[in-house]
């Protein structure tokens, strides 16, 4: 059986909030290393890969592989009943038809308990090849969100260009064009403000802003975001959480002349 206790419900609330507009029905695949989810959006352009490691829970118990088939809209309805600071416990049997969720207020004067009906979801998993990306950019997640939102006002697509001089986000729209160039920032006092660019070769790729703006809903999970880019392969946008857990988004590029 699965028993997983989170000190603060907000972790799961934020994760589900960040992905529920991209994917609807998906399996939480549980085993002794944690809870994983992999799902593509309906258009097969974006993929969500979530890993909540056992270390992010206390305690975490799962002795077998258990697939918890969830509708994220339904899960959101239940999670809305949890306060951010509540202690959240997930429980499920080995072949579950429901997921038990309890929310305890930190001073333990209130315990809420819900059972959510599960779905049988036959989901195919994609093999994601290990890639040595040509460019890895680490930046404040709020900055990335601002860039994507600002450019989306002008255009459907953004071209991300990483070179030795910095990283440039450029768009071309009906009303004109715009670009934002970022250079390396080293803020010793406040490392969250750092902009780091690791480059093995220059890259330039175009992506749909609609999806990038959607990924930015994960901004609350982490103060920093990492973009991994190589020419002609999907972009990886990664939000790292405590305990080695992460939320990753993959986005297929736009290619052509």
């Amino acid at each position: 059986m699965l028993e997983a206790r989170l000190e603060q419900a907000q972790l799961l609330k934020k994760v589900v909030d960040a992905i529920k507009d991209l994917v609807q029905d998906c399996n939480f695949d549980c085993n002794d290393s944690g809870i994983a989810l992999q799902a593509m959006d309906n258009s097969h352009v974006a993929l969500v890969s979530m890993m909540l490691k056992a270390e992010s829970f206390n305690p975490f118990r799962c002795d077998r592989n258990i697939a918890i088939g969830l509708n994220l809209v339904s899960l959101t309805k239940v999670l809305r009943a949890a306060q951010n600071e509540d202690i959240l416990t997930l429980k499920a049997e080995d072949a579950p038809d429901s997921l038990n969720l309890t929310f305890e207020s930190s001073d333990k004067d209130r315990i809420s308990e819900y059972d959510l009906k599960l779905m049988d979801i036959d989901q195919e998993h994609l093999g994601i090849p290990d890639t040595d990306y040509s460019a890895t950019i680490s930046m404040p997640s709020a900055e990335f969100k601002r860039i994507c939102t600002d450019l989306m006002a002008m255009s459907e697509s953004v071209t991300i260009e990483a070179g030795k001089d910095g990283i440039k986000f450029a768009c071309n729209g009906d009303i004109g064009n715009g670009s934002i160039t970022l250079r390396t920032v080293q803020d010793v006092e406040n490392k969250e403000n750092n902009i780091e660019i690791a480059l093995t070769e220059p890259v330039s790729l175009t992506f749909s802003l609609k999806y990038l703006v959607n990924f930015c809903k994960a901004q609350n999970l982490s103060k920093t975001v990492k973009l991994h880019i190589s020419n002609e392969v999907p972009l990886l946008v990664e939000y790292a959480m405590e305990g080695g857990s992460y939320l990753r988004f993959y986005l297929a590029p736009k290619i052509g002349d």
Binding site: V45, L47, A252, K254, I255
Partner: peptide, 14 residues
């Protein structure tokens, strides 16, 4: 114009 690619042309089912 550039054409949106599908993820399935990069990632294959396990």
């Amino acid at each position: 114009t550039k054409k949106q690619q599908s993820l399935t042309s990069f990632f294959t089912p396990k």
